[in-house]
Amino acid sequence: MEAKVFASSQPILSLRGISKYFGGVHALEDVDFDVYPQEIVALVGDNGAGKSTLVKIIAGVHRPTKGHIFFQGQPVEIHSPHDAQALGIEIVYQELALIETRDVPANFFLGREPVKGRLGIFVDRRKMVEDTVRTLRELGIELPYLRSPVRYLSGGQRQALAIGRVMPWGGKIIIMDEPTAALGVKESRRVLDLILRLKEKGCSVIVISHNMRHVFNVADRIVVLRGGRKVGDKKKSETTPDEIVKLIVGADML
């Protein structure tokens, strides 16, 4: 079933020949990367392999030094996070990117607060609260206090909030940088469920993770980076955790 979906559909996002240099450092070198509709792609690799750089290029935080990006077959340039959001690319950052001193709705709508009135400068607080509650319910995310600063939430609750807040924007591609890194077993399970639910809802998900069990739990395809180059691109059904680990560390395959 899944194989058929892949065969019959075009990638929603294609990167071709992407290189990124920071001064003399080659963070990425000639990387091709595809994401298909309703697909969960795991992006794996050692520290410094270029995973975060790659997703930041997709999210408009970095510009590639070389290479092209195609969205639904059309060449696009992503200059800023706003450009990425306009295309339907949402990112959940490793650093969580929450404002600890602000409450849940303010974080939920961070940077794109809805406005009301003719002046267009006043925030529509009621809509913020209503939409926040509705989305969190839909996703089955439980948060104790909506109107308290986010610093009073647990790690898992914060992660759920960080993931949940990208939902209402009709994102077609959701990128998650280490979503389970700082979480306990139970909380990780919830986040993985959330990823699967995003797929059910029609999203594609790119997940960066170091945890092989989590990767094989949710991913449809696994892309391996090493030293800024793509060294593996495998469907989950055609590979094993062993093989992926060998690709990550660069050990001889045979």
């Binding site: 950052y93 650093e95 990117a97 404002i99 602000r102 794109r112 607060e113 925030v123």
Partner: peptide, 20 residues
């Protein structure tokens, strides 16, 4: 909206810039 962004920049400037 400007006020919300003032709090965001002061609370976590990096996060504020990441969301644009």
């Amino acid at each position: 909206k400007l006020g919300y962004h003032v709090y965001a920049v002061g609370g976590n400037e990096y996060a504020a810039s990441l969301v644009g």
